[in-house]
Amino acid sequence: MATRGFFGKQRDPALEARIPPGQALTEDFPVLSAGPTPRVETSSWKFTLKVGPRAVKAWTWDEFHALPQTKLTRDIHCVTTWSKLDTHWQGVMVDDLLGDAGIEPPTGFTLAHSYDGYSTNVPTPDLVGGKAMVATIYDGLPLTPDHGGPARLLVPHLYFWKSAKWVNALQFTERDELGFWELRGYHAYGDPWREQRYTGDP
């Protein structure tokens, strides 16, 4: 249904192929979160890999930085309809976390947990094979608390709420367990190219 009198902003055809349906480009870096921004000191920061309830490996801030550091440049898409192109990140690939822990992906599903108590679910295949990292640097600078610092998950090919802010654990689960946002109306998978914004979207 065309909306009477609506033409939309001037669009750059060169960029259009990179912008999923219903999204608009932004130069800002919008923030979506359910509560206040937690302040996490790097001196007490810890990141844990879990299989079910069992912790298999944990890293302090310094130990985490001794792991291979990788740079990624990716487009990101927030469910509130913002997209931002060519964002620059640095951190540790989930592949390298698994490698350092000496394990293969143990199950097909993962819950990412955060310092603020929230969680989000991501299928394990979407986290490995060079697809995702735990990022600590954005645009050359330490990630600020507002944007999830000291560390956030980065799963850029899914809507950005999947890139859990203030992340402190990845937990492999036997079944696909819904996270905080997914239990409150957001889509279980969240592919921006299929516009999987809300529960029940195909």
Binding site: A2, F6, G8, K9, G22, T81
Partner: peptide
Amino acid sequence: RLTAPDGYVAQ
């Protein structure tokens, strides 16, 4: 959601 004549959608 607003739709332009060329199908472009803003949400």
